[in-house]
């Protein structure tokens, strides 16, 4: 397997507080990689640096072998990094399919067309994506009335629309019922392997993490303290300490 995303010595401080410190890792194509850690460990900061929302103080982010450092999020996306958010971000004034179509229009650089009705463009592609996430039946509904789990699926379809090499998923299952969580992550894993996409996700639910991650990284106070296969991480003393210390042991050791 080939490395798609490599992160080298990434650091970021906010007014004296070191949010991320000297983080280095690499993710391979087709791999499901989890980034876990207690609240405030620096996961979201890390994510925001990967897709260009934040500028790191030092370090580099390489996509393939080209640096994407300093590019705005929209450019990072164009290079093939998709993203989903902890709180879903979809377009309320559009139907489910229009959400996907808008993304496809942007992907194909057609958003400056002013004459043709957008609704008639990339219909088949949009439907195919909805098919993949199991949302075909609801294509004409408003995003505002969808169940939360369905909304997450729409977001996944949006994130897949530009054929990404890397998918960043911030807390993909937050706010979902347990049953839905498993379904969504199973779906993600399936798509990732079928399309050979590298998925990097943060997650609080350890059941989800240990069930789907190929490898797991643990972040604590901005530093990467462990990285390895699920079993290695589970048995890592430092990890146990961090989680016991913070009192937030979910599924560690039980999965």
């Amino acid at each position: 397997m080939s490395t798609v995303l490599s992160v080298q010595n990434l650091s970021k401080a906010f007014g004296g507080v070191q949010a991320v410190e000297d983080v280095t890792f690499a993710v391979d194509a087709g791999e499901m990689r989890a980034l876990i850690g207690p609240n405030g460990a620096g996961k979201t900061t890390c994510f925001n640096m990967l897709n260009g929302q934040l500028k790191p103080d030092s370090g580099d982010v390489l996509l393939g072998n080209r640096s994407i450092l300093g590019l705005p999020p929209r450019e990072v996306w164009r290079r093939g990094v998709g993203r989903t958010f902890q709180i879903t971000a979809t377009y309320g004034s559009m139907t489910v399919r229009e959400n996907i179509q808008t993304t496809l229009l942007s992907h194909h650089r057609q958003i400056n067309r002013m004459w043709t009705a957008a609704r008639t463009l990339f219909v088949d592609e949009a439907m195919a994506l909805l098919e993949q996430v199991g949302m075909v039946n609801q294509y004409d509904r408003a995003c505002g009335v969808l169940a939360y789990g369905d909304l997450k699926r729409v977001e996944l379809a949006v994130a897949l629309a530009n054929d990404p090499q890397v998918l960043l998923m911030d807390e993909p299952t937050a706010g979902m019922a347990p049953r839905e969580r498993v379904d969504l992550m199973a779906l993600t894993a399936e798509i990732a392997s079928a399309r050979n996409i590298a998925v990097l996700f943060t997650e609080h639910d350890m059941d989800v993490v240990f069930a789907h991650a190929h490898r797991i990284m643990v972040l604590d106070r901005g530093r990467l303290i462990a990285e390895g296969a699920p079993n290695d991480v589970r048995n890592n003393e430092m990890v146990q300490e961090v989680y016991l210390g913070s009192g937030a042991v979910h599924g560690v050791g039980s999965a």
């Binding site: 971000a89 979809t90 377009y91 309320g92 004034s93 229009l105 400056n112 002013m114 949006v158």
Partner: peptide, 16 residues
């Protein structure tokens, strides 16, 4: 049109 959709997209969710 696509332009209008992109415009509305910016209003609905700048983040997305």
């Amino acid at each position: 049109s696509p332009f209008g959709y992109a415009l509305r997209a910016g209003r609905d969710s700048p983040l997305r």
